[in-house]
Design a protein around this nucleic acid. Structure first.
Length: 428
RNA sequence: GGAGAGAUGCCUGAGUGGCCGAAAGGAGCAGUUUGCUAAACUGUCGUACGGGCAACCGUACCGGGGGUUCGAAUCCCCCUCUCUCCGCCA
């Protein structure tokens, strides 16, 4: 969440920034936050003062008791009681105000950075770069991947339906091996790039969900195990970033560069429609995620590095893709700047989002209480960043559709050492 | 699942009602010193909020919540977690 100090010092700027994100009622809410913060401060002052007096008097009473002035001690006890009562009343008020302040802050999204283009939705996003592998001749007629996976019998939705439900596909034979190949390829590449591999739990507690901002914003989008009060992670970002919750890192630990493969779970409540056939949208999918934690002054340079890294993966997979910068109206709640990667799926003539690389600045760090200590012993909030590198299903969709031939599907060269085969063939 | 023990600062660990935000040691940081690796010595060393230009001051925090008391890390109750033993088990 935003820091109240930042809001206080830059009220007008914050409101303007929030309006860029198409956040309604920014002015009202920000002013309410400032009012609550002021009330919080005043209440605390009153409480502290009552406490201070009570503490002092209690100490005095102790000394009187020791020196035998019992009468004096007894007569002042009541005074302490009334001071304590006053302090307790103030504390109740303080807790109430703090709760209100916190709730208000939780509903405010992150402010977009200056580089974010103004806009309402996808149509206003900015194309940053595109890539089209040379010399690639697409086989005609092109089929969408949902026909190909049936034809080659590599991914089975009906079976998943039987054992779990819609959106939980079963990968079989070459399909399963392709999944494993991609995961290993992505992890190995990240290792080469200097990321440290993490294998986190795939269920997290409520504090973790709050830490990275999925709660309360995306409450209904996560699978929730009410019995044990755990959430199935929607992305490895949640457990990996939360590793550093409530930490004060030393400067020499920075930057943190982690990579993790996990399955990801999304309820996708209310978002099923015409364009979500086949692998385009699933309840469970695999993803390799990169996470970085940097000093504030380095985060935007790091974001560019991460974008370049993901672009490198896409090029190695020989996929047609484009990178777009999201406009204010299309960005996520917690992000300050996001680049989306879209792979072209020629069989369905669609661009599919395969990666989202974001800088959250101090927004997550403030919730996480993730800081570092400077040389002069100050604690400063860090910046968190993450990106998919990469999410599998749509990559698979694009790969299958791009590389389909008359009676086989080509596997990109970089994956051959991982798959152990160069083509996916019919009838096997 | 059953029985017992425990939870204190970055770590180890002392502290059973006021002088405890907390001993001591280690690690870390800064400095001094010796010819390197290293050692010795000195100092420093929690977080948050509030006040102050600042030095500094106030308040809270010894797993979490509640209670007793003029006063709680310390006594009482509840919860959570960890460890040990037994059972079960990939």
């Amino acid at each position: 969440m935003l820091q109240t100090a930042v809001i206080k010092e830059n009220r007008d700027w914050v409101i303007k920034a929030l309006e860029k994100k198409k956040f309604r009622k920014a002015t009202e809410l920000i002013d309410e936050i400032l009012r609550l913060d002021q009330e919080r401060k005043e209440t605390q002052q009153k409480m502290d003062q009552a406490q201070a007096e009570a503490n002092q008097l209690s100490r005095q009473i102790g000394e009187w008791m020791k020196s035998g002035e019992i009468g004096k001690a007894e007569s002042e006890k009541e005074k302490v009681a009334s001071l304590k009562l006053e302090a307790a009343t103030m504390q109740q008020q303080l807790e109430l105000v703090q709760k209100q302040l916190n709730e208000a802050l939780l509903t405010v999204p992150n402010t977009p950075c200056e580089k974010v283009p103004v806009g309402n939705g996808p149509e206003d996003n900015q194309l940053m770069r595109s890539y089209n592998p040379e010399g690639k001749i697409l086989f005609q007629p092109l089929l969408p991947h949902w026909d190909l996976i049936k034809q080659y019998d590599i991914i089975d939705f009906e079976l998943g339906n039987k054992i779990t439900g819609a959106g939980f596909p079963v990968y079989k034979g070459a399909g399963a091996r392709l999944q494993r190949a991609l995961i290993n390829f992505f992890l190995d590449e990240a290792l080469k790039a200097g990321y440290v591999e993490i294998q986190p739990p795939i269920f997290v507690n409520e504090a973790s969900g709050l830490g990275t901002g999925q709660l309360p914003d995306k409450e209904g989008q996560m699978y929730h195990m009410t019995e044990d009060r755990l959430y199935a992670i929607p992305t490895a970002e949640v457990p990996i970033t939360n590793l550093y919750r409530d930490e004060i890192l030393s400067e020499n630990q920075l930057p943190i560069r982690n990579v993790g493969y996990t399955p990801c779970f999304r309820r996708e409540a209310g978002s099923w429609g015409a364009h979500v056939r086949g692998l385009n949208r699933l309840h469970q999918f695999d993803k390799v995620e990169i996470v970085q934690i940097t000093k504030p002054e380095n985060s935007y340079q790091t974001l560019e590095e991460m974008v370049n890294y993901v672009a490198g993966l896409m090029e190695q997979l020989e996929l047609t893709f484009r990178v777009i910068k999201l406009c204010g109206g299309d960005m996520g709640f917690t992000s300050a700047l996001t680049y989306d990667f879209e792979a072209y799926a020629p069989g369905q003539k669609l661009w599919l989002e395969v990666s989202s690389v974001s800088n959250f600045e101090a927004y997550q760090a403030n919730r996480l209480k993730l800081r570092y200590r400077t040389a002069d012993k100050k604690t400063i909030l860090l910046h968190t960043l993450n990106g998919s590198a990469l999410a599998l299903p749509r990559i698979v969709a694009a790969l299958l559709e791009t590389n389909q031939q008359k009676d086989h599907i080509l596997v990109p060269k970089v994956l051959h050492p991982y798959t152990g085969f160069e083509t996916i063939n019919l009838g096997k």
